[in-house]
Amino acid sequence: MMRSLATPSLALLLLLGASTPVLASPCGGGSSSGSSGGSSGSSSGGSSGGSSSSSSSGCTDATSIIGRTECSRFGTWDRQLFGPMRWSMAFTGGTSSVSGMHLAGEVTHDQVHDYHLPTAPNVRNTPERFGMGGFEIEGTAFVTDKLHLGLHTGFALGAGDGASSQVGELTLRSKSVVQLSTAGVIGLSIPLGSWQVRSDTLIGLRSTNVSIESQQGSCIQQVMAWNNQLMLEPRVGIDKWISPWLSAGIMVGSDLMQADDLTIAIGITGHTTPRDNAGVVGLLR
């Protein structure tokens, strides 16, 4: 990305996640001052004389010559507002459970029955565990060399025979679940050559839709119940750089707010800077 001195346009900056885009070029730079015309051969760059650069405050420079600008200073390309960013998508698998979730509603057989789960004691006839499969995406930005912050959202489906509960004359059995999760991410990334060890903590909300089968005698009905609960899921994993811009990895985590929860995410991550600029060459300072 070509960069130069001018102060960034905010929208462009947010769009690109780049540090200092410039007026003359969508990605910050282009020829903010045009190129000067001929060198010993002829320059391919355009017209002589500086064009202007401007800042988001509306200040406009008539030139981009260092020392003669009013709105901008040299080296803004070195002062990144955002660090490297990365976007991940992953397929997930694992287990989950609805035990302990508070589910309530009505079901109609010969008459309307209220139900409230969990009841005590639960009568379990099968292990209370669903096999889960899903998809998730995550965007994070580095705020220091190793610390990253971001957002995460995921979707997962689960099926299996859940626990049965006896509520009066009703036998309730959870049959399948759909989970939607949205969370903030805070984590650490530690480069190890072409590998990267990551630990993330997801803090957010998980909504679970449970399909419940209600049986009264020979009458069977299906009802849906929603549960929302906090999500606190630490994860650890490892990424392997497969190109300067892409890494692939695996993470394992468990939502501490949910019983019997285990998530394994296998995914690919795109990086806005190669290898997250983990290295520096040509040390001058």
Binding site: M2, R3, T63, G75, W77, P274, R285
Partner: peptide, 17 residues
Amino acid sequence: ELQPALLGGRESVMERI
């Protein structure tokens, strides 16, 4: 203003001096 500065990996810049 001219100071040592980091040019990020695979980035480019033009300065008029």
